[in-house]
Design a protein around this nucleic acid. Structure first.
Length: 318
DNA sequence: AGCGGTCAAGTTGAT
DNA sequence: ATCAACTTGACCGCT
């Protein structure tokens, strides 16, 4: 029932995604740069396939794809169209093969555009560039069968309600490829579940409930309450986030992520339901496998007969 | 071959 | 007023 998700990269497994920098590209001719970007894109499509295969083979049910899978795609100078890349047909075909693999083995994929993607900004150009990046990520999402593009609400600018109003207006203007995948996540600085739930309910956007952020920035709503409300914003399998604090809850910086997940940080109300939990832990696949092992043991421990093993959608022991 | 400074972008909050 | 912290390494220039 529960599936655990791995975020973007591996700690031990030799699966790497490549990148480059604008400075490096700008020292070359346009053609040389595009050839280089094409190599990286092809390598990243291969790495994604390897990542999905790893997930399948290790009982990991979801994989978050780094937003730099096509590096510098929308950079003002170094940016490019897919069709500019030499061998683009093959590259797109490779990504689409990842999409078929994802469907075939039920490995859910998602995107999490980084902090520069801000739809609530009062600066029109910031919003324009953010939307351009979402267009790119939605294009790749179509290829690879990703059903979630998850963003934060952005800055508060001293007036959260005004910022949320701008956000809602931008959301309404987005093309379907983005709109149908877009989700909102509570953050640990400005926007709590209490802030976001009304917008989610009104705009029909699912809430990606990050319980770690909620613990860092509480809003008076209980975890049980937010869990229940967030579940209702989803028209498909919900996706939540989980992490543990690096130095414990009493440490100086509880918002920093630990290498692993302390099972005590997993809300009990999340168990035994259809749910994707993205594991934000620095030990990456090692941390996911460790939690899977714990949950399997746990599931077998307090359940009997037919229910045995059903706690997890995908078993860890293969 | 290996090391380490640097990397497109926005916003906040700590100093 | 400046700058690290967010996700987090991987890359590229230099020795």
């Amino acid at each position: 029932m529960i599936r655990l998700g791995l975020c973007c990269i591996f700690r031990d497994e030799p699966i790497k995604f490549r990148r480059t920098t604008a400075a490096y590209l700008q020292r070359q001719t346009r053609d040389e740069g595009l050839r280089y970007l094409s190599e990286i894109a092809a390598a990243n499509a291969a790495a994604l396939k390897a990542a999905l295969r790893y997930c399948r083979d290790n009982g990991i049910g979801a994989f978050r794809i780094n937003s730099q899978i096509l590096p510098l795609k929308t950079h003002p100078q170094a940016g490019y169209a897919v069709n500019d890349l030499p061998g683009h047909a093959r590259i797109v075909a490779d990504f689409k093969a990842c999409g078929r693999f994802s469907r075939q083995f039920d490995i859910r994929t998602s995107f999490h555009p980084d902090q520069f993607i801000v739809l609530s900004s009062p600066q029109a150009d910031v919003v324009r560039r953010s939307v351009a990046d979402l267009v790119y990520q939605a294009e790749v999402a179509e290829w690879v069968n990703a059903d979630v593009i998850n963003i934060h609400a952005g800055g508060a600018y001293g007036d959260k309600q005004a910022a949320l109003g701008r956000l809602a207006a931008v959301i309404d203007s987005l093309p379907p490829a983005i709109r149908t995948r877009l989700t909102l996540e509570n953050d640990d600085r400005s926007y709590t579940p209490r802030d976001l739930l009304p917008l989610c309910e009104r705009s029909g956007l699912p809430l990606v409930y990050d319980v770690h952020h909620h613990r860092c920035l509480p809003d008076g709503l209980s975890e049980e309450m937010v869990t229940a409300k967030a579940l209702r914003t989803w028209d498909r399998e919900p996706l939540f986030h989980l992490s543990s604090p690096a130095d414990g809850w009493a440490g100086s910086k509880p918002n920093r992520h630990h290498d692993f997940i302390d099972p005590a940080d997993l809300p009990v109300t999340w168990l035994k339901r259809d749910l994707t939990i993205d594991i934000e832990a620095k030990a990456k696949e090692v941390a996911v496998k460790k939690l899977l092992k714990f949950l399997n043991k746990q599931g077998a421990g307090h359940m009997t007969g037919q229910a045995r093993g059903d706690i997890l959608k995908r078993g860890a022991s293969r």
